[in-house]
Design a binder for these strands. Sequence first.
DNA 1: CTGAAAGCGCTTACAG
DNA 2: CTGAAAGCGCTTACAG
Lengths: 345, 345
Amino acid sequence: MDAQRDHTTIRAVAARAGVSRQTVSNAVNSPERLSAGTLARVREAIEELDYRPDAAALALTSRRSRLIGIRIGHSAQRHPSAPEELLREFVRAAARYDYRFVIFGSSPTDADQIRGYGEIWRRRAVDGFIISDGHARDARPRWLHDHKVPFAVFGRPRDGAGDDHPWIDVDARAGMRLVVDHLVARGRTRIAFLGWAPDAAGGDDRAAGWAEAMASHGLDADVTVRTADDSVRAADARVEALLRDSRPHAVVCASDRLAAGVVRAGSRLGLSIGDDVLVTGYDDAPAATTTIPELTTLREPFDRVADFLVDHVVHAAGIANEAPPRTRVVEPQLVVRESTIGTRA
Amino acid sequence: MDAQRDHTTIRAVAARAGVSRQTVSNAVNSPERLSAGTLARVREAIEELDYRPDAAALALTSRRSRLIGIRIGHSAQRHPSAPEELLREFVRAAARYDYRFVIFGSSPTDADQIRGYGEIWRRRAVDGFIISDGHARDARPRWLHDHKVPFAVFGRPRDGAGDDHPWIDVDARAGMRLVVDHLVARGRTRIAFLGWAPDAAGGDDRAAGWAEAMASHGLDADVTVRTADDSVRAADARVEALLRDSRPHAVVCASDRLAAGVVRAGSRLGLSIGDDVLVTGYDDAPAATTTIPELTTLREPFDRVADFLVDHVVHAAGIANEAPPRTRVVEPQLVVRESTIGTRA
DNA sequence: CTGAAAGCGCTTACAG
DNA sequence: CTGAAAGCGCTTACAG
């Protein structure tokens, strides 16, 4: 049962090398203090015994767990709080500092999550948190800030909330401009928008971006439909009348799942998606490549997002690294597929 | 920078309650040893100061991190090593014991992963591991077993590998029987199978299960197609000839993505999926509900899988809980959707 | 350059 | 019932 018995400790290495424990510690942390001979001897012992410093002891003395906390589960918005692809980038980014991620669950409400942060923080089980699903009227940043917990947020503060914490966001407006420009270049002018019910979440930037881009081309931005949730089924049901009555040349969607619903509804109505009507998604989620035709969409640069967020938390935890700027906005990338250029292209 | 300064320690609680530090420890761990009065006083102090024992100190004295390691990323098979839904269940299951998960990355090769396990284990950064993507000729269980690391595997050992470690698996054969029975009940007899190239991964059980179920109905199991990878595109390309030449009544697929490819190809050929030809998937992944029509599929009981695996690791780490049986096989559940009953149903 | 001392925050025996 | 002692595995000053 007690599988933890036979770990090599610093004591064993010291005995093997014929030095004191402090000298072994110095060999690991301040090798320049040792004579070449001693250093070589200690290193050999470390090698032979395959010694690694104990994580708990290290955390206790350094007051640093080398762990970052992140919640997984549904978010207050319609997306998972941390899609797998993003999680993967977090792990990669943290590994640059020999940090790892601890995942925990909780309900999507801010209050429950704050309780969770508090519980973990009081135990000093992590060095900080990343909030991967920042939203409007978000109570979490303030709490973390007030409690002096290192953290950084994916998603900009809204409703005039202060910029008193680090955040990074994707410029959805710039993304929507790419989309609309692309559709206009394909000769479409009657371009509708399908989004979620307004609620100050990220979706509103997507809607606003579409409207702005339309205006910049001198086009009317008056055909808009909203669904209650981010589901294929809801989009399908909600968009059918639009497709039939307004006869748009293209439908710009706030997500790939919504776009998949448009593809469904359009196909059922006998429209050729990518020819009769162009459809675009957002996120480059798995749904973008399971439809017929595949979806033109916008991909967020998760790698840069993860680097930024991890850099901040690690820095706030006292690890020496270049202090990143307090905030940053990055642009999504247009991924062109059949849903806007047709299958015969 | 040093945000970690103002944590409440056991010393502060002791001072506040006017007792020694051990007495505070006893109040937390062995309350029955204290007199009612002292206990109340200590508890009040804990409450007022919002004290929680330090995780690192606890880990150091108890030799238990209350952390389980799991790798995320691509697997040697065609699936992600731990889809988000499964990860969520892991987190829930671990929380029952006040355990959490640490995630780390690595390439999909066994050798790299073993290196990773070793690195983490030597530091005693976790109490054990869960392998969520056990496969044939899997070198990881042996290594972990030989090094006395607590672990449990999702996926049964193959190639006559010993049952010397805990594992749980989903009975794909039983699942395929449900699928074939369902199709036969819908009056179909010419039932084809679309799977992956044989490679001793889990996919082979799915193929074998289909063949067995066919035989049990006295049906020929001779129409089979294999793709190189688990992609919609590959399935689409690969299945077109089958659909055209063999004219099956139904296509049973080894995954939802493959099934989505069949839906694509079938629709392009003018076949009505769910009527002319029935299609089934496997996994109840997001892809299952983004196709038109939505896919009948098999869902694996991730909740029971997670409970089993966590119970084992936690038990091996010395936490008192009921020792689960060494191995277990659970059955998937048939989820019937339009792809086998038509949209007019 | 190397090691004896003290301490990180806690727990487990063990006296009193 | 309560507290003084020793220790978990390490590191950081600080003597020598």
